[in-house]
Design a protein around this nucleic acid. Structure first.
Lengths: 220, 220
DNA sequence: AATATATTTTAGACTAGTCTAAAATATATT
DNA sequence: AATATATTTTAGACTAGTCTAAAATATATT
């Protein structure tokens, strides 16, 4: 069994790997787990010892198969708890991350499997991120950024690339939530801001910064 | 905020207080939190420092008001999670204690309040133990031991005094679960074993040891 | 290629919680 | 009341995880 702290490091390494394939460096991990580089080095030795990461001094880090499996399991737990918090307890999608960070460390496969069944075997969490199964497999969505979406073509919002509470609250306020139907009606060449319509209602402007953090898929 | 470990000590002291009013001694706590007396002494100093317990060297321990409030809050969390695990996820009443011991340490009043509402504001946990409210108040049940129940009088099972998995599984197997209607038909003078009928079905024998760990209330 | 800068690691110290063995105190027994 | 026994506390050491400051290495710049 891995400690609370070890799990957090693995999760951080996994998340960083997603963003930037290749080796992950010490400072990036330190920032993610809110600690100092020196502490990270200590933990990397420990994780390497346990065969969870490939680590050579000064050479950066990659997850081993075992490490990846563990990380995906944590992600699985995290996302299932998020679904529970939003769907069952009525939390907003911007409020659940911190709570799920605690809940994810409760280790019982039986608990998680029962939770999954209770939630109706959801494929994605409240932010549209896919939920890994036991084996670590998860849905691969073929989503595009709204900022790259074609004009006058109805698409459906399926995810976000930015998970900050501020961003999520803003989206909710202007009516951009998962499964919303969006049509880009105009793109401003100067700043790439978009004029869009939501669910066929009066449109609104969003900045490029916002548009590039929204994922959409073709309406099926 | 109190650490995971501090919470466990407070909970242990509270539980011991329930069983034996008066001061709680170091060894009893050590056994309950599975540690050594020396470690308990260290922690008692810390808890006294934080005004959670009244502690004088060699004199035993009592909870302060603040300590009691904290302990009741942990009990509240523990029992609500147990309801969730049994009612919503389908765990057996003998399986939930250990999981709830982990879940109870997740500290968010909002989470617990929402969980409580989601569960329909239950008054008791799956073992019939009352759930404290915010203020630490809880239902006071006027239950008797089945072993002291009057003959030929229908009563309802409302709780247990023994929470071991083995005992709970045994009760479930023979059909003794919460809210079961029980009538004592015969008492054996020699060993105080009882012949009882359950929900008006063919009767069965139970030992005195079992009967004295079952709580019943008058059928209303 | 030599040097400056940035990144990572090492060394040694700190905290929370635990332990063993010895010392101090309380309680039980005569 | 004196002594034996049981309980609790103290002293000092250990582990997991963290930190700062200095040393080692890698990368960027000239």
């Amino acid at each position: 069994m891995h400690s609370f702290t070890e799990e957090n490091y693995l999760k951080a390494i996994y998340a960083l790997t997603q963003k930037s394939d290749g080796e992950i460096n010490t400072n990036a991990i330190a920032e993610r787990v809110s600690t100092k580089a020196a502490s990270v080095t200590d933990m990397l030795k420990k994780l390497a010892e346990k065969q969870l990461i490939n680590y050579q001094k000064y050479q950066g880090v990659t997850l081993t198969e075992a490490g990846k499996k563990t990380a995906l399991n944590i992600v699985r737990r995290h996302r299932l708890w998020e679904v529970f918090l939003v769907d069952k307890l009525g939390f907003g999608w911007h409020e659940v991350h911190t709570l799920a960070e605690e809940l994810e460390h409760i280790k019982s496969d039986e608990l998680i499997d029962k939770l999954e069944a209770f939630l109706g075997n959801p494929q994605v969490d409240p932010h549209g991120d896919p939920i890994p199964d036991h084996a670590g497999k998860m849905m691969h969505s073929s989503a595009d950024k709204l900022s790259e979406s074609a004009m006058n073509q109805a698409v459906v919002m399926t995810g976000v690339l930015e998970h900050s509470s501020a961003f999520l609250q803003y989206l909710e306020k202007i009516g951009l939530t998962l499964n919303t139907e969006i049509t880009v009606q105009e793109a401003n060449e100067f700043d790439q801001s978009l004029f869009i319509s939501i669910n066929a209602q009066p449109g609104l402007f969003i900045s490029h910064e916002v548009a590039k953090n929204i994922l959409v898929s073709a309406k099926e």
